[in-house]
Design a binder for these strands. Sequence first.
DNA 1: TCTTGACCTCAAGTTAACTTTAAGTTGTAC
DNA 2: GTACAACTTAAAGTTAACTTGAGGTCAAGA
Lengths: 131, 131
Amino acid sequence: MDIAKVAKLSGLPASTLRFYEEKGLISSVGRQGLRRVFNANILDQLALIALGRAAGFSLDEIARMIGSKGKPNIDRELLANKADELDRTIKKLIGMRDGLRHAAACSAPSHMECPKFRRLLGLAADGAWSK
Amino acid sequence: MDIAKVAKLSGLPASTLRFYEEKGLISSVGRQGLRRVFNANILDQLALIALGRAAGFSLDEIARMIGSKGKPNIDRELLANKADELDRTIKKLIGMRDGLRHAAACSAPSHMECPKFRRLLGLAADGAWSK
DNA sequence: TCTTGACCTCAAGTTAACTTTAAGTTGTAC
DNA sequence: GTACAACTTAAAGTTAACTTGAGGTCAAGA
């Protein structure tokens, strides 16, 4: 596959694929002339990267997990930690969501006069998004 | 209150407070010489900003919601929309969390050979984090 | 063979949200 | 009244994750 095909199948622009390669996140199997040639499993690798991103890993973290070999070498403890971290995030977001929903429906003249809204402020102030 | 006190009470560095002022997110009530003077409600305003950030608004969006006046003028529909958006995010994250937890526990020789993990990849690839 | 469109590299640009630095001013404690 | 810690501004720097641009190469179709 050439880069255009990978781009089309993955939905990522070619520039991103080159960027990922430069970062060591993916690699082509070779070249035909100047042009990169990828094989089909690149799509799995890209999906894995997307998963990592979605779970909140940085590209550098993902690069470390993938290691230098093609086959991912993912530390199970790392995954469990990330799951726990995600869980905390989810709880915070649920608080936010409920607070926002209340604020949207609340009849207090101004949000600032609504006790629930003020409680939300406390929640948010409190490192909800530390990092 | 001077900027140092606001910084201490809010936990934000003075540089951030100046930056927020420059962006129109907050304002001081005046100056004593060169120095900014804030009144106590700045803390509520900052909490509101923190809330907005935590809910996923950009500083520009927050500035728009706050309007030019001190009192927030938050569109209830906007809040409801944001709550819905958060809700979708939460659902995605729950899928991720469960997938990660499974992957951490899974006994397949490589994550790539585990059907649940592969399903996760699909989830992630699929615009889970579209901006 | 010639043209051309898709690919290439490398460097610089972009955006968000700040932080840092340099140079200057001043309220306040002694 | 003087030293100085803490404030001030404006501009430049930072980080992540890309994107864009300039200038060049090349495989494939007419």
